[in-house]
Amino acid sequence: MTPLRQRMLEDMSIRNLADNTQLSYLQQVSLYARHFHRSPEELGPEQVRAYQVHLTKTRKLAPGTVSIATAALRFLYSVTLKQNWAPDDIPMPKKPFKLPVVLSPGEVAHFLACVDSLKHRTILTTAYAAGLRVSEATHLKVTDIDSQRMVIRIDQGKGRHDRYVMLSPRLLEALREYWKVVRPKTWLFPGDIPGQPITRFAVESACQKAHRAAGIGKPITPHSLRHAFATHLLEAGTDVAASNCCWDIAA
């Protein structure tokens, strides 16, 4: 590991950036350095601009992807290298706003019925019924399910915040049926490696397989189930902010 990479890693750790964000930023900076075959310390605003043009015009990457690379370079030069550049020296691309394609309740039910593994079906059902991100669902522990208060504890979700989300009676019933068969110990959805939770890749692969089996034309990902959850609550006239129970543990 180079001294610059080590220093950037320490800077991100000090600021408590999420692990996935740290890995992504390091990867983006590495790709940037490899593109010019030089250390980022030897490069300046003109090289950053040329790299953004390369990502946009040559590689034709989506604005969201270019934004990740831009955020990594902004952190590198403003925090780690402490360059006193103007914000416009590393402009952030504007991302177009697009409404997500949302599944109907019937489509969600049909999709979940096409998931052939009990564990995969239950974790995808949980992601939908509780409105969870896939990383939150994969890291649930058995002790996070509070059937007395009818809530699920989300430990260190996005932004490293703890919160509670609602636990519906139907989801609790599904989780109990799953527990009777699998009998998980620590992780609610254990992975193939002993002592480790199921991986995000495994959940996404199961989702793709069920999507093909369901024959639904709309795109389906674990995250689209989260969108469906929020939309279905709104259509039912529910206060989404109150229902999703974003209660900070410290509050």
Rank of each mutant, 00 (worst) to 15 (best):
T2E: 14
L4K: 03
R5Q: 05
Q6T: 13
R7D: 13
M8S: 10
M8I: 07
L9S: 15
L9P: 08
E10L: 15
M12C: 12
I14Q: 12
N16L: 14
A18D: 12
D19W: 03
D19C: 11
Q22W: 03
L23V: 09
S24P: 07
S24E: 09
V29W: 00
L31G: 05
Y32H: 07
R34D: 06
R34W: 00
H35D: 03
R38H: 09
R38M: 04
P40K: 08
G44W: 01
P45Q: 10
V48S: 04
V48D: 02
R49C: 09
R49Y: 05
A50K: 12
Q52L: 15
Q52Y: 01
V53K: 10
V53E: 01
V53T: 15
V53F: 03
T56E: 01
R59H: 04
A62L: 00
P63F: 03
G64R: 13
T65V: 05
I68N: 08
A69Y: 02
A69Q: 01
A71K: 06
L73Y: 02
K82N: 11
A86P: 07
K95Y: 00
K95M: 08
V101P: 00
S104D: 14
S104I: 03
S104Q: 13
P105F: 02
E107F: 04
V108Q: 02
V108Y: 00
H110P: 04
H110E: 02
L118Q: 08
K119C: 11
R121E: 09
L124P: 08
A127C: 14
Y128T: 09
A129D: 07
V134Q: 04
V134I: 12
S135K: 09
S135E: 13
E136H: 07
A137S: 05
L140I: 01
V142I: 09
D144S: 08
D144L: 08
D146P: 06
Q148H: 03
M150N: 11
M150L: 14
V151D: 02
V151S: 09
I152Y: 00
I152N: 01
H161Y: 06
D162C: 14
R163I: 02
R163V: 06
S168I: 01
R170Q: 15
L171D: 08
L172F: 10
L175N: 06
Y178D: 07
W179V: 10
K180N: 15
K180S: 15
V181I: 15
V181H: 06
V182D: 09
K185V: 14
T186E: 13
T186A: 15
T186W: 03
W187A: 05
P194W: 02
P194K: 12
P194L: 12
G195L: 10
G195Q: 03
G195W: 08
I198C: 06
T199Y: 04
A202D: 06
A202Q: 10
A202G: 14
V203W: 04
V203C: 12
S205L: 12
C207R: 03
K209A: 15
K209E: 11
A210I: 08
H211C: 10
R212G: 10
A213G: 11
A213V: 13
A213W: 02
A214F: 01
G215E: 05
I216A: 13
I216Q: 12
G217S: 11
T221M: 03
R226P: 03
R226W: 00
A228H: 03
L233C: 12
L234G: 10
L234R: 07
E235Q: 13
V240S: 10
S243Y: 13
N244G: 07
C245R: 13
W247I: 14
W247E: 07
W247R: 14
